[in-house]
């Protein structure tokens, strides 16, 4: 019973992610079909990869006729930031290795951000189920929206253009609300550094590298100001 409630709480906490994923997933499905991917291939990409950035890059590379190996390497390079997500939250999820292996598939940028902010508010034993709920909301929305986009994306975007353009803004709004609790003494300078650096790199056309470079730079700024670093000269 508690597991079911935790799963439902997770579904609720994942709802803002689902809201943001819906229009982006529809757009992916539409673009995929416009670039010659069938319904099966587009859906398989969302089911198996479950990473918007890599999937959009895949479409662009296929359209450009990029070699197979280059497309693979570029898509994986784009997802390299995922290397940092698991270690940040794994120790706080008391689940066996098989459970963590299953949960890993759904660890997108947005799921990570929600998990980092809200995991500690969940009773430890319920955390895997809560996490499964968050991931189910995100995954269901992404895969469902891809199918809808591949079948009827063109009609949706023509009929509801403002909604299709505005709904993806749910994701930046979600990130803003998730970062706010951390915006306090000790982390403030690091967060400002990260924001400025990531925005600058992104505007310069290096959005994928921006996430890794800016977050590590911000963490270094914070790390130098943390209490445990003051004893390192001993």
């Amino acid at each position: 019973m508690k597991r079911r409630l935790a799963y439902r709480r997770g579904l609720g906490d994942g709802a803002p992610i689902a809201l943001g994923y819906l229009p982006v997933g529809v757009t992916f499905g539409l673009l995929a079909s416009q670039h010659g991917l069938g319904l099966l291939e587009a859906t398989l990409a969302s089911v198996l990869i479950f990473s918007g950035a890599a999937q959009f890059m895949l479409i662009a590379l296929l359209a450009a006729g990029a070699p197979w190996l280059l497309a693979l390497m570029l898509c994986l390079l784009l997802n390299a930031r995922h290397l940092l997500y698991g270690p940040s939250i794994a120790a706080r999820i008391p689940a066996p290795a098989t459970g963590l292996a299953v949960l890993s598939h759904g660890l997108t940028d947005e799921v990570f951000a929600v998990a980092l902010s809200r995991l500690d508010a969940q009773p430890p034993a319920q955390r895997p189920w809560w996490m499964a709920g968050v991931e189910s909301a995100a995954y269901g929305a992404w895969v469902g929206a891809t199918v809808i986009g591949a079948l009827a994306g063109d009609w949706i975007i023509r009929t509801l253009p403002l909604l299709a353009n505005a709904l993806p803004f749910a994701l930046p709004a979600l990130f803003l609300l998730l970062v706010l609790p951390y915006f306090q003494a000790g982390r403030r300078l690091g967060i400002v550094t990260t924001l400025v650096l990531a925005a600058g790199l992104s505007l310069a056309g290096y959005a994928a590298a921006a996430i890794l470079i800016a977050s590590v730079a911000g963490a270094l700024v914070c790390y130098r100001g943390m209490p445990w670093t003051s004893t390192r000269s001993h």
């Binding site: 930031r81 940092l84 997500y85 940040s88 940028d109 947005e110 990570f112 951000a113 980092l116 902010s117 930046p172 990130f175 803003l176 998730l178 970062v179 951390y182 982390r187 690091g190 967060i191 990260t194 924001l195 400025v196 650096l197 990531a198 925005a199 992104s202 921006a210 996430i211 890794l212 800016a214 977050s215 590590v216 911000g218 963490a219 914070c222």
Partner: peptide, 9 residues
Amino acid sequence: PMLIAALLA
């Protein structure tokens, strides 16, 4: 938290 800030930006 820096990763979330970078994702926001």
